[in-house]
Design a protein around this nucleic acid. Sequence first.
DNA 1: TCCGATTTAATCGGATGCGATATATATGGA
DNA 2: TCCATATATATCGCATCCGATTAAATCGGA
Lengths: 174, 174
Amino acid sequence: MKLNDGPRTGSRDDSRDNSKASQKPRPLAGERRLGDFLCFAIYSANLAFGRAYKKGLDELGLTYPQWIAIVALWEQDGQTVSELGEKMFLESNTLTPILKKLEQMGYLRRQRDPADERQVRISLTEAGRRLREKGMHMKLVASTGLKPDEFARLQENVVTLRDNLIKATAEKAG
Amino acid sequence: MKLNDGPRTGSRDDSRDNSKASQKPRPLAGERRLGDFLCFAIYSANLAFGRAYKKGLDELGLTYPQWIAIVALWEQDGQTVSELGEKMFLESNTLTPILKKLEQMGYLRRQRDPADERQVRISLTEAGRRLREKGMHMKLVASTGLKPDEFARLQENVVTLRDNLIKATAEKAG
DNA sequence: TCCGATTTAATCGGATGCGATATATATGGA
DNA sequence: TCCATATATATCGCATCCGATTAAATCGGA
């Protein structure tokens, strides 16, 4: 199963030559329109999620990635930066500033692991744990336009897509 | 149909009390794990897409949003910043620097509309149009793990989700 | 033991996103 | 006409992301 991240390719000789007006309003000459790309759907849906969450997160005084880090730490306290990064799909270059900010806000502690001074272990403070409790009230409730089973399938398929993209990218990089 | 962006809420008295080891390894106390959030699935899938595209875009010398702008302009030349922003789900604060960069690279022109000097119209140069042709070769081919009909449904459902999130956010803002 | 290779975070520079604000232009009612 | 208001971009500051590099600690073979 191959991903082309857009409409079918091949048999593309109907583009160009807009003298014979085609059925569908093909703007200019392109046949791959922005709306046809799955990557753009995901990109714009991510923007939409960020904006939908913004109001609730502002009340908590957190940004979206900061909140994700809190949730990930609630699941498992005392993770190293790398472990947390695996869960969040980020690396230390992105994660370290976020964690320093959260530490400065008093929500977590960062301390070198005595057994291996290279690693930094992250643990939530009491304030950090309370933060997550408060965040649970901030439920995003919005009309999805999807039936429950569609919603569940969407979740599964997005995860499948993500994991296969990562696998493919890693393979080509190696 | 309401979106909770996570697992079921309600009947939550099985958390806490990890003395009786539960079937599934519930880490600490949280019941809403990161992997259960649709917003996080979308967020991480977006990161994965960006990384998957990175190599091909580097060869074009473009970033991901820059390439999106080129595609959107190919569809319809001479758009204003606002019109382009509607297609890309961005506003001038984000779009202007991207367009200035693309102009500096010689891929488009930005000129005030004589009929309304407030508006700036964006038009691709020849180099900009060639760029998109080259980009078409940069097809992302990766194993999705999804059947074709699942893939198509995923695309549709992500778009539905996005549009309903935007609608709901706009309503609450108003 | 010793030293080069590896691992883990952190740092740095460039490019988004975005809220808030600024600036220039257009519009419309007194 | 005049001016308050609205509109369209642009600017600014902050917070991600990310590739490349650095710094410190660990590991491992000679």
